[in-house]
């Protein structure tokens, strides 16, 4: 039997493979020789398009899915052989609205989940109250979950993930459905989890969120690890590929902008409307200047979407789901 390694990586995944059977076809490979290491106390972002293998990885780590081959360990404990000892170390927050008893109140739900982590009634009550307060749901503690908005349910999911006082927290798209204020509060919560020395594996589509929160980010696609980067690389990608949208742009002006240094492409998105994509930091500034000097004032800038960054990282397949 393995022993819990305090100094062992919080998460260590080696050559992990997971195949799913398909009807009448070859197995679909969701994870392909995947490697990952998350240090204790690290906030690690996992970025990838739909079907990339992020949720499959979270499910294997949380012991509800068996790998086809390879290994995954939490604080040195194998998630298959030592699943019973892994579970108390983990908290998992799956995205979406499922996984709660809708007719029970938020407090009743949390007390239920606390009991499943071995907490007695009194301790469970105390823990539920503390967590509801922490995620900002204390005023709604005694209301049925079915009356909650999607964002509130998501916050309750976060509280549920923390109820067992886990050393490792798996957050599978935890801010889906949250309003901007709640998403900001969520970031504060993750910061506090880091300060408490917990490791967090965060899957997300939101690169700005990953950049703000993570110590490292891994890009995953087709079940394979593409790159593991410092989040500052994300920052560079975000600034390097800044986009400018403008309306009321004559064709001749669009041609002039396309010729500016650092402009990668000018796409027509409607009559007189263009989207200018840049490929180096600071390239958006001359574009803006040119537009304004030409009398175009309906202008906005935005960072690239995850899809656009992926176009650069993984090629033209972009966000299309793999067959």
């Amino acid at each position: 039997m393995s022993h819990i390694g305090i100094d062992a990586p919080a998460v260590e995944v080696r050559a992990l493979v997971r195949d799913f059977r398909t009807r009448g076809g070859p197995p679909r490979r969701a994870l392909d020789a995947f490697d990952l290491t998350v240090a204790p106390g690290e906030v690690h972002g996992l970025l990838g398009p739909n079907g990339a293998g992020k949720t499959t990885l979270c499910k294997i780590l949380s012991t509800i899915l068996l790998p086809t081959s390879g290994s995954a360990a939490v604080h040195g404990l194998d998630v298959v052989a030592d699943a019973k000892r892994v579970r108390p170390l983990l908290g998992i927050v799956f995205g979406g609205e499922r996984g709660l008893y809708a007719r029970m109140t938020a407090a009743q739900n949390l007390r239920f989940w606390a009991a499943l982590y071995g907490l007695g009634r009194r301790e469970g009550r105390r823990r539920a109250a503390e967590l509801l307060d922490r995620v900002g749901l204390a005023p709604r503690a005694d209301e049925p979950v079915e009356t909650f908005s999607r964002g509130m349910k998501q916050r309750l999911h976060l509280a549920r993930g923390l109820v067992g006082d886990p050393r490792v927290l798996l957050l599978d798209e935890p801010t889906v459905g949250m309003d901007p204020v709640s998403a900001h509060e969520f970031r504060d919560l993750v910061e506090s989890l880091r300060a408490e020395g917990r490791a967090v594996l965060l899957t997300t589509h939101d690169m700005a969120e990953a950049e703000a929160l993570c110590d490292r980010v891994s890009f995953i696609d087709g079940g394979r690890l593409l790159r593991c980067e410092d989040p500052r690389v994300l920052g560079e990608l975000l600034s390097r590929h800044e986009r400018v949208r403008a309306a009321g742009v004559p064709a001749a002006l669009a041609e002039r902008i396309a010729a500016l240094p650092g402009v990668e492409r000018v796409r027509e998105t409607g009559p007189g409307a263009v989207l200018v994509e840049t490929d180096r930091g600071g390239a958006a500034l001359p574009v803006l200047r040119t537009l304004v000097e030409a009398g175009v004032t309906d202008v906005s800038t935005a960072p690239p979407t995850l899809e656009e960054v992926y176009l650069h990282l993984i090629g033209e397949r972009g966000m299309a789901v793999r067959p």
Binding site: P88, G99, G118
Partner: peptide, 18 residues
Amino acid sequence: STGVLEAVLTTPAPLTAV
């Protein structure tokens, strides 16, 4: 069907107890 089973199986509690 409500996703609760998935969450229950990630906890230390045996399913038979629940």
